[in-house]
Nucleic acid binder design. Structure first.
Lengths: 113, 113
DNA sequence: TTAATACGCAACACAAATGTTGCATATCTA
DNA sequence: TAGATATGCAACATTTGTGTTGCGTATTAA
């Protein structure tokens, strides 16, 4: 099983999750553009984008005088797999091999009979 | 589309991800037990478990003089869906409706022709 | 009852994260 | 060329996060 990804640290901040949301539907944007819709400075946004890039969630490309950022959807999918792997392992720990749809309540009741 | 979950903040810390790993394969544990395998104090572990519980990733139950924690696999699956939803939205933004398996390199080349 | 075990809460210390401002540099446009 | 626009970097201020220690309380076991 793979080591824990630092992608979650990048997604731990609400502003960065918002940037991810925007980049999921707008295909690209700049720190200046995003800062215009946020209550924080351009520099602050630029650093958020830098951290998202460090985590591999976005990538950037200089285009003339602006730096455009775009989402890296694969990294999101990878993080989702990390989570799913642990959910599945939990199922195996409990001795079940499927049925993700079971309610949490049902699980609780089954855990300590 | 749902608001951003604070689950990621809970998963942003390496120690908490390790606790999630353990709880995925051991079905339950206490702060004292886990602290014995970690280089930090019981109180520190207890607070990590509290934060995981606040985020809905684990749940606890008092049993005599000990408090046992167990994983809530559903919350992991939910977080995975949050990520997948954005990966899919990105695909739609680019005008494609499947093929997650495409390489990031291919995506880059296709974005700005 | 007494001693040991397991918790929870609170006060502190310190490092990391987040935001601001100021300023220098590069690029586009008139 | 000159002005406007877009960045990046650095210094600083504040808030959060993470870990420690100390101490009081509940539960188990001798």
């Amino acid at each position: 099983m793979p080591e824990s990804p630092s992608v979650f640290a990048a997604l731990s901040d609400p502003t960065r999750r918002l940037l991810v949301d925007w980049l999921a539907s707008e295909e690209s944007g700049t720190a200046t553009e995003f800062s215009a819709r946020l209550p924080i400075s351009r520099q602050a946004v630029a650093r958020h984008l830098q951290e998202l890039e460090r985590a591999g969630l976005v990538w950037s490309e200089r285009a003339g005088r602006e730096t455009r950022f775009s989402l890296n959807a694969e990294s999101l999918t990878e993080a989702a797999r990390w989570l799913d792997a642990r959910a599945e392992k939990w199922d195996r720990t409990l001795g079940r091999l499927k049925h993700h749809a079971e309610s949490a309540h049902g699980r609780r009741a089954a855990l300590r009979p």
